[in-house]
Amino acid sequence: MVLGARRRQGERLRLRSQFLASATSFPSVPDSLDADYRDLSLALGANLALDLPLALDLESGVQLRRYRDLDPPVDTPWLWTSLRLSRPLGERTGLRLLTSRRWQLAPGADDLLSLTESGLDPGELLWDGWQVEAGLQRLGRRWRSSLTVGWLAAEYAAEPGSSARHDESLQTALACSRI
């Protein structure tokens, strides 16, 4: 949901909420790993467009992930909050910088720990930590394309009494979507 209200000339505050439902599967991973999951999330955000060619965006949300193939099924929730700065670099090109913090609310389930150690991308699993991204986006008449470079510092769920594993990684993504 996006609510808009003009504050003064050239400056605008918008409030929004968004609901997401998704399902992820791993077709090349053995079924015995039971890694498939479903996500539900709800986010609330505020976006302030300043008189400068700069916009600030603050978002917080809660996400619930269910590994339904585990026996018994495991639900794992987390919270996140993010701050994004964006500005245009031209008529159809924009730059954005984003930093986010994530808190895992219920780490420690043994079945999830085995997934973390299975070789799957740990960024998809249980972690607390920081993420920083810089991205360029270009709008065409029918297509939107973006290039993102990110840094992730994640601390993974650990068994009670042991130290959490810590990883830092660089990520790049190229995305293209039809408008």
Binding site: A21, S22, F26, S28, E124
Partner: peptide
């Protein structure tokens, strides 16, 4: 490995 996500 591959991962496929469908989302709404």
């Amino acid at each position: 490995y591959d991962a496929i996500t469908r989302s709404l």
